[in-house]
Design a protein around this nucleic acid. Structure first.
Length: 599
RNA sequence: CGGGGCGUGGCGCAGUCCGGUCAGCGCGGCUGCUUUGGGAGCAGUAGGACGGAGGUUCAAAUCCUCUCGCCCCGACCA
C-alpha cells in the first residue's frame, strides 16, 4: 500500500524501514506495518461460525474457509503456527527426537498390510493415480513410518529411535465442525518411537509425556493429562492432553485429592453407593405407564439406584447382549465395548428389542432371557432390585441377581459423574470439559508385527520393535488457546502463541510528532526483538482499538498527541486491561522486559 | 448417515408463505470535503440477477422436481 509514513518528520520512514528489515534467526520479520498486511478483519460475526474460537479466528483475519473442514491459514495465523512448531521442536529435539518429513500421499497397500484399510473406512481419503493404482492421503503415518524403519533398521544397536514430523493430514470426517477444532485437513505433529523392549518403550513414552507437559506449559495453556482409551490407533495404554475449556467436546474426570485424571470414557468407577435393599421375594407389581426410571422410582417409592435398567445392545461382530446397570447411572459405551470384545455395541431399536426379547421398550427383563447378560458391578450386590417383567405395565420388585436372573459377567460399565469415588484414593472426583490437543500411545508391537519391523537382538535372535506414537494437533492447539482465552472484544493471546507480541498504535498518523515517536519506538522494539505490528493506517482511534482488541496481541502501545506532548506512550495489557504510562525513551526496554517475563 | 436450519453484491441480512409493483437494507469498497482517544458525518460512486440445472406460467428470488454446498444436533478423532 502507501509507502510514506503519513506526515512523519525526516528520517521517520528510514526508521520504519529499518524496523521492517529486522528478522529473527529463522528469517521471520520482527515487525510489520498493518497497512498492507493481509489480516482482513470483519466487523460482524460470520454466519458460519458458532464457537468462539472459530468466530474470532475468522473475524480477526487469521483463517478463511475453502471447503467444509478445509481452511487457509492467513499470515498472522501462520506466525502462531510457526511459534507453536518451534516450541514443539525444542521439546522434542532436546529429548533426542529427529525431525523428518514423510509424504502425504501413501500407497494403499501399506494400509492393507496393517489391516487398517478396513478399520479406517471412509474416513481414509482414497484416490487413484493415472495408472489406476490405489493411494490414500495420510490421516496418520504409522504405516509409512513403520515401513521406513523396517527397511533400514536391522539391529538393536540402531535403537532407540524417535522420529517426528509436522504434516498436513487429511481425515474425511463425517462432520467437520468448529473451524480448526475438527477440520478434515489439519496440521499434526506426529512422532514415533522405536525400542527393543517394553521397558525401554516405556521410557520413551515417559519422555514424550514429559515433553508434552513441557510444550503445553510453555504455550501458556491450562491443561490436564488424562488416562485415555487407545481407540482406533490401538495399543496398550495412552494419555490425552486436554486444554480445559467449557466448550470442549471431551469430558474428563479428575480427583483433586490424589491427582488421578482420566477421560470420562476411560475413567474407572467402583464402589459407588447403590441402594442394595433387603432380601425379599420376587414380586410382580402393576406399574401402569411407568416407563422411565425417575417416574418408576417415585411410583414405587424406592431410590432410583435400586432400579435395574435393562438395556439391549447389539454388538458389531456378534449377537445381542443384555446389559444391566443401576437406574441412576449412565452406560459408558467405550467401557462396554472393551468389556464385551465383540466390536462396537449399538443400542437396539425398540423393534429389535421386541423381536429379540419379546418385551416392549421400558419393560425388557433379565428374568428368563436366553441371550448373554452383562452387568455393571453396581448391580452385583443388590438384594432387592426392580426389573422389568417383559410385559407392558408390570415390573418385578425384590429381584436379586443370581437368584432371580442370571448374570454372565460383571464389569465396570458406568459413566463416572461428579462426586463419585476416585478409583485410586476414594475421594470425590470432579468433572470438567476439555479439548484434546495431544495424545500419546504406547503401541507395543501391533504394527511392527503386522508389517514385519524386526531387529536383531544382542543374543542373535530377532524380535519385533516396540513402538509408541505421539500426536499434537497444531491448529487445534491454537484454536483451543483461543477458546480458553478470549473475551467479548476478541482474542486474548498468551504471549508464546501470539502472532505478534505488541501492537503499536499511533493515533494521529498525520501528526509528525506522533509518527516520529511511533517510528522510533517501532524501530527500537524490533531491534530488541519484540514482535510488533505498527498500525500505520490513517484510521480513527476507535477503529484501531477495536481491531487491536479483536486480534488480541498481549501488549498494546498507544502513541498520541496527548501522550507525546508529555514525552510518554501508553501501554495496555490485553489480558488484564492494566494501563501504564511509559516515558518514550525507555518504553522499548520496558516492553521487552514485560514480554520476556511473559514468555 | 439420520434429524434440524440455510444458500440473495466482499460481509451480515430483508424479500420467498400470498408469482408481476423486486432486485432492497446495513456494514464494507472507491472519490471528495469535514472529522480524529473506543468500529465518524455528509455527498457521490461502483458492485449482485437471487447456489446450479430442469420444469410450470404471459410472467419466477418467490411455485414444482432434481442437484450442489454450508451450518447446527447425534455416532468418531489431533
Amino acid at each position: 500500500m502507501e509507502n510514506d509514513a503519513g506526515a512523519g518528520p525526516p528520517g521517520c520512514q528510514a526508521l520504519i524501514d529499518e524496523a521492517l528489515s529486522l528478522t529473527d534467526p529463522a528469517g521471520e520479520p520482527y515487525a510489520r506495518r498493518l497497512s498492507g498486511y493481509f489480516a482482513p478483519t470483519l466487523k460482524e460475526d460470520p454466519a458460519e461460525a458458532e464457537l468462539a474460537s472459530h468466530r474470532l479466528m475468522i473475524r480477526a483475519g487469521l483463517i478463511r474457509r475453502l471447503a467444509g473442514g478445509i481452511y487457509t491459514y492467513l499470515p498472522a495465523m501462520l506466525r502462531s503456527i510457526r511459534k507453536l512448531e518451534r516450541i514443539v521442536r525444542r521439546a522434542l529435539n532436546s529429548r533426542g527426537a529427529q525431525e523428518l518429513l514423510m509424504p502425504a500421499v501413501q500407497p494403499l497397500e501399506l494400509w492393507q498390510e496393517s489391516g487398517r484399510d478396513r478399520k479406517y473406512g471412509p474416513e481414509l481419503l482414497r484416490l487413484k493415480d493415472r495408472h489406476g493404482r490405489d493411494f490414500a492421503i495420510g490421516p496418520t503415518h504409522e504405516e509409512v513410518m513403520t515401513d521406513i524403519v523396517r527397511r533400514d533398521v536391522r539391529s538393536f544397536r540402531d535403537l532407540p529411535l524417535n522420529l517426528y514430523q509436522f504434516q498436513t493430514k487429511f481425515r474425511d470426517e463425517i462432520r467437520p465442525r468448529f473451524g480448526l477444532m475438527r477440520g478434515r485437513e489439519f496440521i499434526m505433529k506426529d512422532a514415533y518411537s522405536f525400542d527393543t523392549d517394553s521397558e525401554s518403550a516405556n521410557a520413551s513414552y515417559r519422555a514424550m509425556h514429559e515433553a508434552y507437559t513441557e510444550i503445553f506449559t510453555r504455550c501458556g495453556l491450562r491443561f490436564a493429562s488424562v488416562e485415555a482409551d487407545s481407540g482406533a490407533i490401538g495399543g496398550s495404554f495412552s494419555h490425552e492432553f486436554m486444554v480445559l475449556a467449557d466448550s470442549g467436546e471431551n469430558t474428563l474426570i479428575s480427583c483433586p485429592s490424589c491427582g488421578y485424571a482420566a477421560n470420562q470414557e476411560k475413567a474407572e468407577l467402583a464402589g459407588y453407593p447403590v441402594a442394595r435393599g433387603e432380601e425379599s421375594p420376587l414380586a410382580r407389581v402393576h406399574t401402569p405407564d411407568q416407563r422411565h426410571v425417575p417416574e418408576l422410582a417415585g411410583f414405587l417409592g424406592v431410590p432410583e439406584s435400586s432400579i435395574i435398567k435393562s438395556m439391549l445392545f447389539v454388538l458389531e461382530d456378534g449377537g445381542p447382549v443384555l446389559v444391566l446397570i443401576p437406574g441412576d447411572r449412565e452406560i459408558n459405551l467405550v467401557k462396554l465395548e472393551n468389556a464385551l470384545a465383540g466390536g462396537r455395541p449399538r443400542l437396539a431399536e425398540p423393534g429389535e428389542a421386541l423381536a429379540i426379547t419379546g418385551a416392549p421398550p421400558g419393560f425388557v427383563t433379565p428374568v428368563g432371557v436366553r441371550i448373554p447378560v452383562a452387568a455393571d458391578r453396581g448391580v452385583e450386590g443388590m438384594l432387592a432390585g426392580v426389573v422389568g417383567t417383559g410385559e407392558e405395565g408390570w415390573h418385578y420388585t425384590g429381584a436379586r441377581p443370581g437368584r432371580d436372573f442370571r448374570v454372565d459377567s460383571y464389569h465396570d460399565l458406568a459413566l463416572s459423574a461428579a462426586g463419585d469415588p476416585c478409583p485410586r484414593c476414594g475421594g470425590p472426583v470432579e468433572v470438567r470439559k476439555g479439548i484434546e490437543v495431544g495424545h500419546v500411545f504406547k503401541l507395543g508391537t501391533r504394527y511392527s508385527e503386522a508389517m514385519g519391523a524386526r531387529v536383531a537382538l544382542a543374543d542373535g535372535t530377532e524380535a519385533p520393535i516396540f513402538m509408541g506414537c505421539y500426536g499434537i494437533g497444531i491448529g487445534r492447539t491454537i484454536a483451543a488457546s483461543v477458546e480458553q482465552s478470549h473475551d467479548k472484544d476478541g482474542i486474548v493471546w498468551p504471549m508464546p502463541l501470539a502472532p505478534f507480541e505488541a501492537a503499536l498504535l499511533p493515533l494521529q498518523t498525520q501528526n509528525p510528532a506522533v509518527m516520529g515517536a511511533a517510528a522510533r519506538l517501532f524501530r527500537d522494539l524490533a531491534a530488541l526483538g519484540v514482535e510488533t505490528v505498527l498500525d500505520d493506517r490513517d484510521e480513527r482511534p476507535g477503529l484501531k482499538f477495536k481491531d487491536a482488541d479483536l486480534l488480541g496481541l498481549p501488549l498494546r502501545v498507544t502513541v498520541s498527541e496527548r501522550s507525546v506532548a508529555r514525552g510518554e506512550c501508553e501501554l495496555r495489557e490485553r489480558a488484564t486491561g492494566k494501563v501504564t504510562m511509559l516515558p518514550l525513551e525507555t518504553a522499548a526496554a520496558a516492553i521487552r522486559e514485560l514480554r520476556d517475563r511473559a514468555l
